[in-house]
Nucleic acid binder design. Structure first.
Lengths: 203, 203
DNA sequence: GTAGCGTCTGACCGGACGGTCAAATCCTGC
DNA sequence: GCAGGATTTGACCGTCCGGTCAGACGCTAC
């Protein structure tokens, strides 16, 4: 069993290969739909060799989610309480949309986990995530009470940012089907969300 | 094999039992995660008996999706081109949110299907759905050009209605975890989306 | 070069799952 | 009440899948 502290070059490379192949599989087919054989094959390893690096299918899944939550919360953390409210919020929307555009597999992995009732991430949601959202909701509420943003429920405002940005990654198939091949959903989404939230936040 | 045209009372009852149990299973665990044994058990039938009514697991899944698409598009169809634009759009938001609130299993089933790339509904999306959306986008664009709604891209406006309403059903676990047990997400969502879209549509 | 650890593999296991089948039982129309 | 189709069941099959294991191979430090 490879140790975490002193990782070999081979360990680093193969762990990365496995996680990348697993992200493909889990995001496209879900936890139960993905198979160890498929992941191993895509990573160029044999199944027993894969299980030499991760002790079970669930261990791979957990490793992905652990790594995911951190980067997923960064855009929210980057909001500056001292900044100009409207620009801070629009910047948050832009960062979140860019994350969805650049990491659609991660977005879909997360969506699948929540859809299934968050059997693995449940604790992180009601702990870490909730605390962070509460914290920033307070900042936003402060801005609203100071008359620097149009008033609304900060929690639901944050939900709306999540919903609107992740929609383009999670439901990409539907967006593509409805818009047709000729259009560029991400560029249009960026423009649309810009005007959309500008209105919501400055009414 | 039971005929579709002349359905027995028993057929009607058992088909309904099966579809209800299957909706539970598929929406909670996904297509691959759900099992025929589990569905049969929840429906109070044996597995071979279940397969007497539906010839395969996929046949049940398809039956659910077929029935789903119809009711799912109703709120959009109910938009009246002759009505008052703002009220028509807000009514659409309210109907869509009510649907998500009253039929969260259906919403999650649909979300799971799209997340996995719409292997079954793909054709319906680029056919029926796209046509309907194009049609109503034209109506909305007409309202905007007449100055009766704030201008934006009608397609993305519709996407935003979908994203914001279905978010509360599909990501209910996350919403609950972040808001805590004391609050009523659906009531809050209704108020929030009302003011949210009022601003977006009348800026 | 060889000891020893890290890496990799083929063969295998046990269980779960989708689906089949022949036969039993039930129900309905006459 | 009975013929015949509708319904139900238990037993079974083949496959897939997650996981194990004993051993082979390879690399590196001495």
């Amino acid at each position: 069993m490879p140790q975490d502290e002193s990782a070999t070059r081979i360990q680093i490379r193969n762990r990365a290969l496995i996680l990348d192949a697993a992200l493909d599989a889990f995001s496209a087919e879900g936890f139960t739909g993905a198979t160890l054989d498929g992941i191993a094959g895509a990573a160029g390893l044999s199944k027993p060799n894969l299980l030499y690096y991760f002790k079970s299918k669930e261990a791979i899944y957990r490793a992905l989610l652990d790594h995911l939550l951190e980067t997923w919360l960064d855009p929210l953390r980057a909001i500056d309480p001292e900044g100009e409210p409207l620009e801070e919020m629009l910047g948050y929307v832009r960062r979140k949309l860019a994350l969805a555009r650049d990491f659609p597999r991660e977005s879909r992995l997360f969506a699948g986990e929540i859809l299934r009732g968050a059997p693995v991430m449940g604790d992180a949601l009601s702990g870490q995530l909730r605390a962070l959202v509460d914290e920033h909701s307070a900042v936003i509420r402060g801005w609203m009470e100071a008359g620097r943003l149009a008033p609304s429920d900060p929690h639901h405002l944050i939900f709306s940012v999540w919903a609107l940005t992740q929609h383009y990654a999670d439901f990409e198939t539907q967006v593509q089907a409805v818009l047709g091949a000729r259009r560029d959903p991400w560029a249009e989404a960026e423009r649309h969300l810009e005007t959309h939230f500008r209105r919501v936040l400055t009414a």
